[in-house]
Design a protein around this nucleic acid. Structure first.
Lengths: 338, 338
DNA sequence: GCCACGTCTGTTATGGATAACAAGCATAGC
DNA sequence: GCTATGCTTGTTATCCATAACAGACGTGGC
C-alpha cells in the first residue's frame, strides 16, 4: 500500500520504512520514554526520509483535543480588534495552539452563527471579543460545553472575563482634565452596545459628579474617525467647551480635525484626550494625550487564561483586569485664560 | 451506549433516535437527494432534539478536506495586515470556509515554522501575506502539495499572486506631485524586504527619470510611524525638499509630525503623499493625499482565487492585480513661489 | 530455579464521519 | 409473470492516530 498521492505518507508508511509498528512511531513522536534509542533513531530517520508530518485531524479525532482556539471578533478593521487578535495569536502560538478566527456583525443571528461555525470546527476553547447583549443567552447555551473567555463584560456573568479596567481609564482621563483646571469635561462616547463604552461613560459621569462639576450631555460615535469628526463639528461650535474626553483615539482624530477646521486651536482653546494609545496617537497633530491600554497584552492574557481552563477544567474561573495608564502628550493644557 | 459527556451526541446517536442508520443521517445532512421526505423529517427532528452538530474533524479526516484556509501574516499590527486579514475572513466565510491564522517574523526559521504549523493543521490552502525572500525555496517545497496564493511578489514565480498594482501606485503619486509643479519628488521607502516597497521605489525612480528630473537619494523606514518621524526630521532640515512620497500612510503621519515640529507648513512649504488610504488618512492634519488600495478587497480576492484552485485543481494559475487610485486631499499643493 | 516486576514493542479497539458496495422493494415494460 | 431499473436504506471498509491491553524478554530477589 503506497503512500497516498494527495495526502502524503501516513504513520503506517513510516512504520513500514522503519520496520516497526505504527504505535512505536507514535511513541517516538510523542516523546514517550519507553523506546530504545536505536529504534527511536530508525524511526526519526524514516520520518525524515519520507517527509512525514503527523496528521492533526486524525489526532484531534482520537484525543478529543484540537489544540485550536476560536476567536470571535467584530467584522471591522479597528485598532483594538486587530491588536487583540495579534495578542491572541502570539499567546496561542507560545502555548502550542493555533487560532481559528471568525468575524461577525452585532446581530443576534450573526453572533450565534459565528459561534456555531467555531464550534463545528472543533475548537478547544473560545474567546469572544464582541459585545453579546441580547445574544448572550443563546451563545452561552451553545458554549456551555467548552471553556470560554470574554473580553466584553456585556456577555454577563458566567464566563471568564479578561480585559482592561475601563472604569479606571475614564477616571484617569477625566481627572487629568479637571486637574488642568477645566471646569468640566465633555464626552464623545462609543456605541452603547459595548460595555467598554458604557463603563467609560458611567465613570466619566461619576468622576464629574464626585468632583462637584456639572455633567454635560454626552455625544455618541461608533468608534470610527468619521463619527468623531461629526461630533467634533458640533462641539467645536460651542464656545464653552474647553475639554473633551473621546472614547477612542480613532474618534479623537476626527474630533481634532473638526475642531481645527472650525478654527479652534488644540490645546490652547480646547483640550482633547483619547483612549487606547494607538500607534498613531503620538503622531497626531498635536500629539494626542491618551489612556494606554494594551490590547495586545489583553489578547495574550485572554488566551493564556483560556488555555489554563482548557488544560485544567477544575480551575476556578475569575475575572482578570489590566490597569490602564495615562500618557500625557500635547493635546491637553489648562483652559484658556478668558 | 449513551452520548459521551464531553463530546456531545454523535451521528450514531441521532441515527438511533430516528430509527435509521448513520449513513442515512449523513445523507440527510448532506442534502443527498435520495432520502424519503418522511425519513428526512424524522432525522432532522432527532438532530434538533439531541442538539446534534456534525463533527468536522471526523469529516475532514475521511474527506481529506477541512474547509479551512491558512493565512500567514507578519506579527505586527499595521493597517494593511489587519484589513487584509479581515478581507480574507469575510471572503472565506461567504464561501463556507474558516480561517486559521498564524503570524511570523521575517526570519527564514520563523517563516518555515509558521508554514509547517499551518500544514499540520490540515488546511486546504494557504495565503502567504509576508515577503519570503530567502525562505521562498524552503516554503515552496513545504507547500508543494497544496494550493497557495501569495500577496507579495518576492515569493518569486510559481504561486498564485494576488495584490495591488504597486507600480501604478507609485507612478500615480509621483506624477501628481510633478503635475503640481514640483521640480522633483523625494521618497521615504518601506523596508527593502517587501517587494511592495521595492516596486514602489523602482517606479518612483523610473517616473522621475522618464520626466527628465533629478532622482534624489531615497530614505528608508520600516512602515512604522516612528520611522516616518525620523526620516521627516531629516527631510525637514533640507530647504530644497518640497515634495515627499511616503511609502505608507502610517509613515506619512510621522513625516508630517516631524515637518510640523521643524516649522515647515504642509502643504504650503512641503507636499506629502502617502500610500494606502487608511481610515485615518482623511483625518490627518492636514488631511492626507494618498493612493487608495483596498487591502480588504485584496484579501477577499486572494481567498476566492485560492478557493477556486482548491475546488478545481486543474485551473490554470494566473496573477491578479488590482488598480489603485489617487485620492487628493489637502497635504499636497504647488511648490512655494520662491 | 521460580516468581515478580520493569522495559520495550506489538495488536486491537476506538474516535466520527463518509465512500463504495449491497440489498430490499416498488414500478415499469414486455 | 418475470426481468430490468430506480429509489431508498443499510453494511462494511476507510481515513489516521492513539489508548488500552498484551506479550516477549531481561533482571533481581529469595
Amino acid at each position: 500500500m503506497e503512500p497516498n498521492y494527495r495526502r502524503g505518507p501516513a504513520m503506517r508508511d513510516v512504520a513500514a520504512a522503519a520496520g516497526v509498528s505504527a504505535q512505536t512511531v507514535s511513541r517516538v513522536l510523542s516523546d514517550h520514554p519507553n523506546v530504545q534509542e536505536a529504534t527511536r533513531r530508525r524511526v526519526l530517520a524514516a520520518v525524515e526520509e519520507l517527509g512525514y508530518r503527523r496528521n492533526n485531524t486524525a489526532r484531534a479525532l482520537v484525543t478529543g483535543r484540537s489544540k485550536t482556539i476560536g476567536v470571535l471578533t467584530l467584522a471591522t478593521n479597528n485598532y483594538s480588534r486587530s491588536s487583540l487578535a495579534l495578542g491572541v495569536e502570539l499567546g496561542a502560538r507560545e502555548a502550542g495552539y493555533t487560532v481559528n478566527s471568525v468575524t461577525s456583525s452585532l446581530s443576534v443571528q450573526a453572533l450565534t452563527d459565528a459561534v456555531s461555525r467555531l464550534l463545528l470546527q472543533g475548537v478547544d476553547g473560545l474567546i469572544i471579543a464582541t459585545p453579546l447583549r441580547e445574544a448572550a443567552a443563546k451563545v452561552r447555551q451553545l458554549t456551555a460545553r467548552i471553556p470560554t473567555v470574554t473580553t466584553d463584560a456585556s456577555a454577563g456573568g458566567g464566563d471568564g472575563l479578561v480585559g482592561v479596567d475601563q472604569d479606571l481609564a475614564a477616571v484617569l482621563a477625566t481627572r487629568h482634565l479637571l486637574d488642568l483646571g477645566h471646569k468640566t469635561v465633555w464626552h464623545v462616547a462609543g456605541p452603547v452596545e459595548w460595555s467598554d463604552a458604557a463603563s467609560r461613560l458611567e465613570s466619566w459621569r461619576r468622576t464629574l459628579t464626585e468632583a462637584g462639576r456639572e455633567v454635560p450631555p454626552e455625544l455618541h460615535g461608533d468608534w470610527s474617525p468619521e463619527s468623531g469628526y461629526r461630533n467634533g463639528l458640533i462641539l467645536g461650535r460651542m464656545p464653552e467647551v474647553t475639554a473633551i474626553l473621546v472614547a477612542s483615539d480613532e474618534m479623537a482624530f476626527g474630533v481634532i480635525r473638526a475642531l481645527s477646521e472650525l478654527g479652534r486651536r488644540i490645546p490652547e482653546d480646547v483640550s482633547v484626550v483619547g483612549i487606547d494609545d494607538i500607534d498613531l496617537a503620538a503622531y497626531a497633530n498635536p500629539p494626542l494625550t491618551t489612556i494606554r491600554q494594551s490590547f495586545e497584552d489583553t489578547g495574550r492574557r485572554a488566551v493564556l487564561h483560556l488555555i489554563a481552563q482548557i488544560e485544567n477544567p477544575d480551575l476556578g474561573d475569575y475575572p482578570e483586569l489590566v490597569a490602564p495608564t495615562l500618557v500625557v502628550r500635547s493635546s491637553t493644557a489648562p483652559p484658556p485664560a478668558g
